[in-house]
Amino acid sequence: MMKKLIVYEFTGLLVLLLVIQSCTNVNSPKSESRNSIPEYYTEEDFQSVHKIDAHMHIQNYADTVFINQAKEDNFRFLNLNVFKSGGKPIEEQQKFSAEMVQAFPDRNAWVTTFSLDNFNNKGWQEEVINYIKQSVENGAVGVKVWKNIGFFLKDEKGQLVMIDHPRFDPILDYLAKNQIPLIGHLGEHRNSWLPLEKMTVNGNRDYARAHPEEHMYLHPERPSYEDYINARDRMLEKHPDLVFIGAHLGSLEWSVDELAKRLDKFPNMSVDMAERVSHLQYQALTEWQKVHDFFIKYQDRLVYGTDLRSSAMDIVNKGIKDPAGIKKHAHEVWMRHWQFFTNDQMMRVPKVEGEFRGLKLPRGVVDKIYRTNAEKLFPVFVK
């Protein structure tokens, strides 16, 4: 009897081991698959990865060439409307943006803006809120304000108006209450307060030459760089629930340390990198580790964007007018940025003088800055 019990126990143990082995064999391919996912992307992954450019300006049918290239390079994008005195009427921008969503479904979304023409009129705030409501009903996923607030807008006394002016408060309260994101290009890059020869990147020099009215170094009577940053910060202090995206690295492009201070202070603040990746590359010349660690620490608050448009200075300066040339330029910009974020090779780019090393960010960080952070801010992008 004892021998039979031993045989039965041994047989049962053997069966149990076979079952465990069988389960292990069934699951092993998945386990191997999970473990085989590389920690980093490569240049070859560029077109296969879903990406979002969260700061572009497509304002006419000629610009649809960017959309075609975005499709080839696996980009969706956010199209930003901008109010400028003398510029394309915002109603036309809104109509065109909505048409682009219909014409290129699942490829793009758009952000509205509002007029400043009647800023000093009694009914202006109600007029703006109604326009934002109508824009959202037509598909807008956010609101953009531009640097004409602080640069050109004046009150009844002829004084420049900053974004922390009380007349903006009801509008900002409305956005916060309804969780409508605000993208703010407020102030300008710090280089604007420097002479051309002291600017750190070539893109800023080109823009200042073309727009001397906005080159603050030439206008010492205007507010200081710090005045604009402080006004933006006061606005965020007054509206802590506002979902805010600081365009162009929040005009703090020159220092990841200064940008980090604001991200720590304002938990609802994110920033896009539009037309400021070169400033990160410039800092990487001498402080590579600091820039790399900044991306690791604030990976949930950084959103990729380019500011691509047909009137961009690098396109104008190169005399690129034909669709093939514009498509090629867009691809080159997107590819250079991808290389900077994904590899650790030494690089040179047109806007930075000198050689720097790519950041080689982990795959999960790259996914956040190129896609999932934008999806959180603008859920319309979630597939």
Rank of each mutant, 00 (worst) to 15 (best):
M1I: 05
M2D: 01
K3N: 06
K4L: 12
I6W: 03
Y8K: 04
E9S: 13
E9K: 08
T11D: 03
L17N: 09
L18E: 07
T24F: 14
V26C: 00
N27P: 00
P29W: 01
S31A: 13
S33W: 08
N35W: 09
S36C: 01
E39N: 11
E43T: 15
E44V: 10
S48Q: 14
H50C: 08
K51V: 08
A54W: 05
A54Y: 04
I58C: 07
V65Y: 15
N68H: 15
E72N: 11
E72C: 00
D73T: 11
N74R: 12
R76T: 15
F77R: 09
F83D: 03
S85K: 15
G86Y: 04
G86T: 11
P89L: 06
I90Q: 06
F96Q: 04
S97T: 04
E99D: 10
M100G: 12
M100W: 10
V101A: 09
D106Q: 14
A109W: 11
W110L: 04
F119N: 08
F119H: 08
G123K: 15
Q125Y: 00
E127F: 10
I129R: 02
I132D: 01
V136C: 14
E137Y: 13
E137Q: 15
N138C: 08
N138R: 13
A140D: 10
W146N: 14
W146T: 14
N148H: 15
I149M: 10
F152P: 02
E156T: 15
M162G: 06
H165P: 06
R167W: 01
D169R: 08
D173A: 11
A176D: 06
N178S: 02
Q179A: 12
I180E: 05
L182I: 04
L186E: 06
G187C: 08
L196N: 07
L196K: 09
L196I: 15
E197S: 15
E197K: 14
M199T: 05
D206N: 13
A208R: 08
R209H: 09
A210G: 13
H211C: 06
L218H: 10
Y228C: 05
H239I: 05
P240V: 07
V243W: 01
G250S: 10
L252H: 09
L252F: 06
E253G: 08
E253N: 09
S255V: 00
D257Y: 04
E258D: 12
L263S: 03
D264P: 03
K265G: 02
N268W: 04
S270P: 00
S278P: 05
E287Y: 08
W288Q: 13
Q289K: 15
V291Q: 06
H292G: 02
F294D: 00
F295Y: 01
I296G: 00
K297E: 07
Y298S: 00
L302M: 12
T306V: 14
L308Y: 03
S310D: 11
A312R: 10
K318R: 06
G319L: 04
K321V: 03
K321A: 04
D322Q: 13
P323E: 10
I326W: 05
K327S: 12
A330Q: 14
A330F: 11
H337F: 09
Q339R: 12
M346I: 11
M347G: 00
E353I: 03
E355P: 07
R357W: 00
L359R: 00
R363N: 07
K368V: 07
T372K: 05
A374N: 00
F381G: 03
V382M: 07
V382H: 01
K383Y: 05
